[in-house]
Each structure stands twice: as structure tokens, then as C-alpha cells.
Simulated scan of single mutants.
Amino acid sequence: MRQHLDLGKKLRSIYIDQLKFLSPDYHNHEIYVRSTDVNRTMISAMSNMFAMYPAAASDAGQTYPNSTAWPTYQANGQKVGYIPIPIHTINDFYDYTLNADMTCPRQDALWKIVQQTPEYTQKTVEKKALLDKLTQLTGDNITLTNIWVVADALFIEVCFVLN
């Protein structure tokens, strides 16, 4: 959530403050927010929009309810109100856009062709010692196809565990 709050501020800085591409206030005809149908990604989208569209305290009663029960927070030293922005989603089974785990027969066929190329075969031979060591250390069969999993884990360690 913290990363998406930061990202929302950055997106606001670029698309609203610098480029003037979007209005400073949320308008549903200007932006459509889409997420996968997973709690984590929906909360990420909410956190992003929370920081991208803070509403000034003077907007109470206009863009958000003027009520002490309504959530407010401090942004850049000013009290702002929470603007609820809809996060749209569709069921994972039908999500051909955002579901990274969606089966794509064409992609599978193309990847099989790649794995048969001389370049792929040569790199597999060149990196055999590394792939074998990673397989031993992880307990998974690491190949050029799935080495990204190890790289992702190491990246996360560096970003969040070691700092």
C-alpha cells in the first residue's frame, strides 16, 4: 500500500501537475481504473487512487460528505478528504488483459519454438553450471524459462528484507 501511495503521488505529479493531462479533481469520464480480481491488486489500485486524488478540506460537502465520520488525512500539511474511486474488475477466468496466469495457446506454441532455436540451446549449455547450482539451492528445476522466479525473489529480498 505504501508503494502505491508513493506511485499515486508520482502519477499525480506527472499527469496532473506537469502534463495537465488529467484534471486535478477526479472525474469518472477521464479515468477508468481496472484491476485483477484479487484482493491485493484491488487494494493496490485503491491506495494508488487515494494518493492521486486527494480532496481539499474546502471540498467537503461537494466531492465527499461533510461529516466527521468521513475519513480525512494529512497530505502536504493540509487536511484532505477521501474520494472513493471505483476499481473495476472482471472474473479471472475471463480476464485476458491483466491475468498473467491466463493460458494462451499461441504464446505456448511460440515459446516451444523459441526453446528449439540454436540460441536458446546454446545459452542453456553456456549457463548449465549456474542453472544446476540454482536448481540445487532452490529445490526447483531452474531453466532459462523460469530463472525469472529466482531473480524476482532476489529483487524482493534486496528491496524489502535487506534494507
Results as ranks from 00 to 15, higher is better:
1 M>G: 06
1 M>W: 04
1 M>F: 05
3 Q>N: 11
3 Q>G: 10
3 Q>C: 12
5 L>T: 04
6 D>N: 10
8 G>N: 09
9 K>M: 13
10 K>E: 11
13 S>G: 15
13 S>F: 15
18 Q>V: 00
18 Q>P: 08
20 K>S: 05
21 F>D: 00
24 P>D: 14
24 P>A: 00
25 D>K: 09
26 Y>P: 14
26 Y>H: 10
27 H>D: 15
28 N>T: 07
28 N>K: 13
32 Y>T: 12
35 S>L: 03
36 T>N: 14
37 D>M: 15
38 V>G: 13
39 N>V: 10
40 R>T: 01
43 I>V: 11
43 I>Y: 13
44 S>L: 01
45 A>R: 07
46 M>V: 14
47 S>L: 06
48 N>K: 04
48 N>S: 08
49 M>P: 04
49 M>N: 05
50 F>T: 03
52 M>H: 02
52 M>L: 13
53 Y>M: 03
54 P>I: 02
56 A>K: 15
57 A>V: 11
58 S>D: 05
60 A>Q: 14
60 A>E: 08
60 A>M: 10
62 Q>Y: 15
63 T>P: 07
65 P>W: 00
66 N>R: 05
68 T>Q: 12
68 T>S: 12
68 T>G: 11
68 T>R: 13
69 A>K: 06
71 P>E: 01
75 A>Y: 15
76 N>P: 10
76 N>E: 12
77 G>H: 08
78 Q>M: 03
78 Q>K: 15
78 Q>N: 10
79 K>L: 11
80 V>D: 07
82 Y>D: 01
82 Y>F: 13
84 P>Q: 06
86 P>C: 09
86 P>Y: 01
89 T>N: 08
89 T>K: 10
90 I>G: 01
91 N>D: 12
93 F>M: 11
93 F>R: 13
93 F>K: 11
94 Y>E: 02
96 Y>N: 15
97 T>A: 12
98 L>F: 09
100 A>H: 10
101 D>M: 06
102 M>P: 08
104 C>L: 14
105 P>Q: 07
106 R>E: 12
106 R>C: 12
107 Q>F: 14
108 D>V: 09
109 A>Q: 14
110 L>D: 06
111 W>C: 09
112 K>E: 02
112 K>I: 02
113 I>P: 05
116 Q>L: 04
116 Q>H: 12
118 P>C: 03
120 Y>G: 06
121 T>F: 01
121 T>P: 00
121 T>R: 13
122 Q>I: 09
122 Q>F: 05
124 T>A: 10
124 T>E: 08
125 V>Y: 06
126 E>Y: 01
126 E>D: 14
132 D>W: 02
132 D>R: 03
133 K>E: 07
133 K>L: 01
135 T>K: 06
136 Q>S: 10
138 T>C: 07
138 T>N: 03
138 T>H: 02
139 G>F: 05
139 G>M: 11
140 D>F: 13
140 D>M: 14
141 N>P: 00
142 I>Q: 08
142 I>G: 00
143 T>E: 02
143 T>H: 07
144 L>R: 02
145 T>S: 13
145 T>I: 15
146 N>T: 04
147 I>T: 06
147 I>P: 09
150 V>C: 03
151 A>V: 05
151 A>I: 06
154 L>N: 09
159 C>G: 00
161 V>Y: 10
162 L>D: 03
163 N>R: 03
163 N>F: 00
